[in-house]
Write a protein that binds this DNA or RNA. Structure first.
Length: 832
RNA sequence: GGGCGAGUGGCGGAAUUGGUAUACGCACGACACUUAAAAUGUCGCUCCGUUCGCGGAUUGAGGGUUCGAGUCCCUCCUUGCCCACCA
């Protein structure tokens, strides 16, 4: 027998599978679409953490192929983005060169793993044939009014010299370069994602979605739906009013002042009435200069200025209140103005304390049955006051803030005694009746700031015409090719480097034929990834986004695997675009990704994140040349629960390599004769069941452990039938495909193992004839006996009571009862 | 501050969902093979005690429910990830 030499056999079978298109049987009745989040090809190449998800989808795909499915398992490149562009700026070369190089490195590394990728479906978001359709989707969004120009202040990264979306920030810093983000007014393209907020939220619960709770929760929080009331507050002495938004209208009698965000338009409108306008102006200027980071870091120190000369009227009790401007109110959320109730809101409380503003308690902190009479409550409240219950009186004294629901109390006029919930209903109804306000739903999620002032992205396909305004480039003129420029450096002016190419910028208006100028902003990196999964299905299509029949055949993606960091970016954007494509009839499904599983990080051996910076990166090439692709594949699936972050251990790869060697060696035990071994058959069928179920549930670690147990058992045998050995190899083949194929062929099989069928298990074979019956006394294990599996309670009890150990433990004590769990245990309960 | 999760040997982890805690693997130790080492194989490997039969303790801490709890409930501690002035 030859030695197990992964180097030899792996390259051989990779070539064979590729040449014979082993996995490209797309005509089967059952279909499965397995997808990995495609990588950004950086120059550094892969580390061992990257392929973990790919190994999982590949294992899954091979399992599905064996089950008789046609499987699409593609790979491509999300290649627009900053690293390529920064390289281009530095070296004054087109980013394409960097991208092509990086793709080649990545591809070479990936090919060594022996994945089932169909490279005929390879895509690249920077390919004009691809981004034609990214641009096409934009023109459709524009036609439907879902892409619009705005001049609102946006997140601006001073180092990347581009605007960014909310999703691109991390702790108020640029996700890419770590610079502090400023707020800067700028002309920009924005996608109306908020129009889809409700559907993005509610469809998370739909049957089209089988996602992990963790990711669903993250999206839910990001969308951040809240139900409240928006209502008007009159500004005395003017004809103006301020609209505020609140989810706690029940606390309205506790309102002691009103706050507007620095960017609120009302300030300009009532300018003439403001006595301290210069002071206000200065505050606004200062607030605008603050970076996003400063705004969050300083959140403990709230600042603000009273707007003197005007008073606000509370419509519920006509009280006159002062008005403040403060940057703890966010301009972009709700109405940018809030009613401040310091007794029942922590932020207002803090602000009121700092500026010595009145605090007025109105909610009594008691959960009250609606059956309780007002008199009872009154009684209770009196008692609290008599006893001077500090915690409650403190709320009224303004020493403590109470933010939960309760019962409306002092000052609440005719709403007195109602629970918060009841009060919200009645007060909202009153506002609506008097046309002062209405119910309102708000979202934390904002519209998607979609333009970047950078070179390396899809040009936004818009032409600005003096007569017609913004006009979409018609389909027959797409793609708008990203032109060559001399200098890739961002300009910082709000235009991208494309603005310098006058020949390209100056064009004719597609509508009127007059003079037009091209939009020079480009799309964000997330654009291509928002629909790429459709391109894999039909990668060569130049006439439509995707062929409708093919789309119906393969969508939705059955299994999607990738990092959890995409929960609120890519996965949200892609769902938004998909829903839009559904609305315009371009796709037939409401959701793009049926099942989503997130891959847990592989940390470095020192427990830190693998990174060049720490010098702890492990390159898969080294591991593969030392142990083979199958060993690293099995190791990464075996190292622990798939979704969990676990530290890498090269020693662990040694272990899985040993296991593969063991499987290799077992061939020596093969006998041509059929060998009847009931015990082994029982184990084999149990293993078939377990491995299949574990793969389905992404419990690869326990599947491999079961295979190890089976291999250990087979190794103990003096002889093994060829059928049983083949079963072991087939079960192992999704994990270690090269080894399995080699062994399979060594047995004289002519066809690939991946043209075989996944074995079925026989329930009869799984049944145990004999079991180890556990004998417990008072719940403690005292003895174990081998008995027939269908032993009855009486028999079990009889046998148990005859055992020496049991007798010793019972001694003189009285038997109270026994608990019998069939096929498992008997528990004898005795007096103590 | 809010949301979601997790705490089991020296380490990664397993436990049929309330029924043998520590499967499988790593590391470690002893022995065999060897001139020697590596590789390989056999045995051992939670802790404490032991007359070597076994006995006791143990799943972050404490309490509860139960014949029986790693698993369910309550309180607390530690820790990971995501979001964060969203009214």
């Amino acid at each position: 027998m030859d030695k197990y030499e992964p180097k030899k056999i792996e390259a051989k079978w990779q070539k064979y599978w590729d040449k014979n298109g082993t996995y490209k049987d797309y005509g089967r009745k059952k279909r499965f679409y397995a997808l990995d989040m495609f990588p950004y090809p950086s120059g550094a190449g892969l580390h061992v953490g990257h392929p973990k998800g790919y190994i999982a989808t590949d294992t899954f795909s091979r399992y599905k192929i064996l089950q008789g499915y046609s499987v699409i398992h593609p790979m491509g490149w999300d290649a627009f983005g900053l690293p390529a562009e920064n390289f281009a700026i530095k070296n004054k070369t087109n980013p394409n060169i960097f991208t092509a190089k990086s793709v080649a490195i990545f591809k070479k590394q990936l090919e060594k793993f022996g994945f089932t990728y169909d490279w005929d479906r390879e895509i690249n978001t920077t390919d004009p044939g691809f981004y034609k359709w990214t641009q096409w989707i934009f023109t459709k969004l524009f036609e439907k009014g879902l892409a619009y120009e705005s001049n609102e202040p946006i997140n601006w990264c001073p180092s990347c010299k581009t605007g960014l979306s909310n999703e691109d920030l991390e702790d108020g810093k640029c996700e890419r370069c770590g610079s502090e983000i400023e707020q800067k007014p700028m002309r920009q393209w924005v996608l109306k994602m908020t129009d889809y907020a409700d559907r993005l939220l509610y469809d998370l619960d739909s049957e089209d979605l089988d996602w992990e709770d963790m990711i669903v929760e993250q999206q839910r929080n990001w969308i951040g739906r809240s139900e409240g009331v928006q209502f008007e507050l009159k500004i005395s002495g003017t004809n103006e009013e301020i609209e505020v938004y609140t989810t706690r209208i029940d606390t309205v009698f506790g309102m002691t002042y009103v706050v507007v965000a620095p960017e609120h338009k009302i300030i300009e409108k009532i300018k003439d009435k403001i006595e301290n306008y210069p002071e206000i102006e200065e505050y606004i200027l200062r607030a605008n200069k603050k970076t996003a980071l400063e705004r969050t870091e300083l959140q403990k120190e709230k600042t603000g200025v009273e707007i003197k000369g005007v008073k606000i009227i509370n419509p519920f009790n006509q009280e006159e209140l002062s008005l403040f401007v403060a940057d703890y109110v966010i301009g972009g959320y709700g109405t940018g103005a809030v009613m401040a109730v310091p007794a029942h809101d922590e932020r207002d409380f803090e602000f009121a304390k700092k500026y010595n503003l009145p605090i007025k308690g109105v909610i009594f902190p008691e959960k009250i049955d609606s059956g309780l009479m007002i008199n009872d409550i009154e009684e209770k409240f009196k008692k609290f006051k008599e006893k001077s219950d500090k915690s409650i009186l403190d709320i009224w004294k303004g020493n403590r803030v109470f933010t939960e629901d309760g019962v409306l109390w002092d000052n609440s006029k005719n709403y007195f005694g109602l629970t918060s919930q009841e009060a919200r209903k009645k007060m909202t109804a009153w506002l609506e009746k008097n046309k002062l306000g209405q119910k309102k739903v708000n979202y934390k999620m904002r519209d998607w700031v979609f333009s970047r002032q950078r070179y390396w992205g899809e040009p936004i396909p818009i032409i600005h015409c003096e007569k017609c305004g913004a006009v979409a480039v018609p389909e027959n003129q797409l793609p708008v090719i990203l032109p060559e420029v001399e200098n890739y450096e961002p300009t910082g002016t709000g235009e991208s480097p494309l603005a310098s190419i006058t020949d390209w910028v100056n064009t004719t208006c597609p509508k009127c034929g007059g003079k037009g100028k091209r939009e020079t902003n480009t799309m964000p990196q997330w654009a291509g990834s928002s629909w790429y999964y459709l391109r894999y299905i039909d990668p060569k299509n130049s006439f439509a986004l995707v062929d409708k029949d093919l789309e119906k055949k393969w969508m939705p993606v059955d299994l999607y695997v990738g990092g959890a960091e995409h929960a609120t970016r890519h996965l949200l954007y892609a769902r938004f675009w998909h829903k839009f494509l559904f609305d315009i009839g371009a796709v037939s499904t409401k959701e793009p990704f049926k099942r989503l599983v997130h891959v847990g990080l592989i940390l470095a051996e020192d427990g830190k994140k693998m990174s060049k910076r720490w010098g702890n990166v492990v390159n898969p090439d080294d591991i593969i040349s030392q142990f083979g692709a199958d060993a690293i594949r099995v190791y990464e699936m075996f190292m622990g629960p798939f979704t969990q972050s676990i530290a890498w251990s090269t020693k662990g790869v040694v272990g899985t390599k040993r296991f593969l060697e063991k499987v290799w060696k077992i061939q020596e035990k093969i006998s041509e004769q059929e060998i009847v071994n009931n015990k082994l058959n029982n184990l084999i069928h149990k293993t078939i069941k377990k491995v299949g179920e574990d793969i389905e549930n992404f419990r690869f670690n326990t599947a491999i452990s079961a295979l190890m147990i089976l291999a250990n058992e087979m190794e103990k045998q003096s002889e093994l039938s060829i059928t049983n050995y083949q079963l072991l190899i087939t079960l192992l083949s999704p994990f270690a495909p090269h080894l399995a194929e080699e062994l399979w062929r060594n047995l004289g099989n002519k066809k690939s193992i991946f043209q075989e069928a996944w074995p079925a298990y026989d329930l009869e074979m799984i049944k145990d004839e004999e079991i180890e019956l556990i004998i417990q006394i008072n719940g403690k294990v005292r003895d174990k006996i081998i008995v027939s599996a269908d032993i009855s309670e009486d028999e079990a009890k009889k046998i148990a009571l005859e055992r020496e150990k049991v007798k010793n433990h019972i001694a003189e004590k009285e038997i109270r009862k026994n608990i019998f769990v069939k096929g498992r245990l008997i528990n004898i309960v005795i007096s103590l």
